[in-house]
C-alpha cells in the first residue's frame, strides 16, 4: 500500500508498504530517517519515540497505515521543530529536515554547532548524557515534549516523564542533569 504523511514538515510518500509494517520501519527503512531507534519493537524502551500529531508515541507500535495524513516529528527534525516553536512560527511551514541518513556530515565540533541544535540536544552533549547514544533520540523527543508542557519540572516530574525510555549505559544521572540543564537554559532565555 501507499502511505503519505508529513515528516519533520515535509510530505513523504512510501510505496509498496507491507500492511504489517510499523511507522518505525517506514521511517527507518523507506524514508532514510534511521534516527528513531529500533531497540525493542514492543513499546518497552522508548528508543523509537516520535511525535505523532504532537503527541509522543512509540513509532514501533503505530501501524504504518495509521500514519496516513498525519504529522510526525522525529529526532532528525527536533532542532528545527524547537527553533520554530521558540520563534513562534506555526507548524504549517514546510522545512527541509528530511535528511538522507547517510551520516556524511564529516567534521563535527561540539559547541561550534550549537546554533543548529535545540536546547535539549545541546544539554545532552554538555551534561555527558550520551554514551552509546541508542536511547538518546527517543529520550530527546520525550524530554523536549515534557519541557514544552512543563518548563520547570521537579526531579520526580522528569523521572516520571522519562520512565518510558530505557537507557542501559548511563544510570540516568547525567540524563537528569541534562534535562535540568535544558530547563535552566530555557528559563534564562525567556
Amino acid at each position: 500500500m501507499r502511505v503519505t504523511f508529513t515528516v519533520n514538515g515535509r510530505e513523504q510518500v512510501a510505496d509498496d508498504v507491507w500492511e504489517g509494517e510499523s511507522l518505525l520501519y517506514v521511517l527507518r527503512e523507506r524514508l532514510g530517517l534511521p534516527g528513531s531507534k529500533n531497540a525493542c519493537e514492543q513499546g518497552e524502551c522508548g528508543s523509537c519515540t516520535v511525535r505523532l500529531d504532537g503527541v509522543p508515541v512509540c513509532a514501533c507500535l503505530v501501524a504504518a497505515g495509521q500514519a496516513e495524513g498525519r504529522e510526525v516529528i522525529t529526532v532528525e527534525g527536533l532542532a528545527d521543530y524547537a527553533r520554530r516553536r521558540d520563534s513562534g512560527v506555526s507548524d504549517s511551514g514546510a522545512s527541509d529536515s528530511g535528511r538522507s541518513g547517510s551520516g556524511e556530515r564529516g567534521a563535527e565540533h561540539p559547541g561550534d554547532g550549537a546554533g543548529e541544535l535545540s536546547v535539549i540536544q545541546q544539554a545532552f552533549i554538555d551534561a555527558g548524557a550520551v554514551q552509546c547514544g541508542f536511547c538518546t533520540p527517543g529520550l530527546l523527543v520525550a524530554a523536549d515534549e515534557m519541557l514544552e508542557r512543563n518548563p520547570s519540572p521537579s526531579d520526580a516530574d522528569i523521572r516520571e516523564a522519562l520512565s518510558g525510555n530505557l537507557c542501559r549505559c548511563t544510570g540516568y544521572e547525567k540524563i537528569l542533569d541534562a534535562v535540568r540543564l535544558a530547563a535552566a537554559r530555557q528559563e534564562e532565555a525567556v
Binding site: 504489517g20 510499523s22 514492543q42 513499546g43 512509540c58 507500535l61
Partner: peptide
C-alpha cells in the same frame, strides 16, 4: 492504539488477514 496488536505483529506472533 496498536499497543497490543503491533507487538504481536512485530514479533511474528500474529498475522491477521485484515487490520
Amino acid at each position: 492504539g496498536g499497543t497490543d496488536v503491533m507487538v504481536e505483529i512485530n514479533f511474528d506472533h500474529r498475522r491477521p488477514e485484515y487490520l
